[in-house]
Amino acid sequence: MKKEEQGKPLSKAIQYLLFGILALAFIALAAFLVKSCLPKPEEVGEQLPLEDTSAIIESVRPKGELYIYSLVAEDFVTKQETEHHVLLFPEEHSCVQVVQQKISFVLDLDKIKYVPDSGKVVLVQLPDIRYVASTQDSRFMSDDEDYWKDHNTDPMKHAVENKLKKKYDTPKIRQQAKANAQKTIGDLLARFGYEARFVSGNIERTDGVETLKSVK
């Protein structure tokens, strides 16, 4: 009889505890459902309206570049990390860094050498073609913006940039760019009545006159 009386308050306590846990679980579930069903303000309508601020011109510099080849390309890298919570299951997190760039092949005009040959013929030596990439878009997507906000995304951006460079800065594309450069310079000189003859090798000055050392 005594044992039964002692056991009753204990089972009552367990009952209340379980009711409490159950109630909390239902509240959490309901909150989760409501949260996942209702759209966040930043997910609806016009996203991220920017204030109309003025753009300030910091510098204006003279340039002498000839753009001879271009393309717009995009690539991405992903990253995954595991977050370890105390007394909870580990949580997986993923993110993607996307970069879109305009890739161009450029000639520096001040590095082009012109040496007058016979009559209206000009020997032209072209410098190395430069690979130039200008960022048009950089997007970061993740499962949890709050988790990733303190991470440094620069290594991921470097990885995408390297991927793009590896893919498009190829000998084949450089060759195409060089051919276009020769065509452009040739056309330009023709406008001024000259015929361009493209050479590679060293142009050296001897007695104040530029001469071509070796011609391929």
């Binding site: 753009a55 011109i57 204006v60 002498g64 001879i68 080849y69 005009l109 195409q176």
Partner: peptide
Amino acid sequence: LKEETDLVTTEVKI
């Protein structure tokens, strides 16, 4: 892929 014949003369930093 575009063959370009563009002459850049000025670079503006904003």
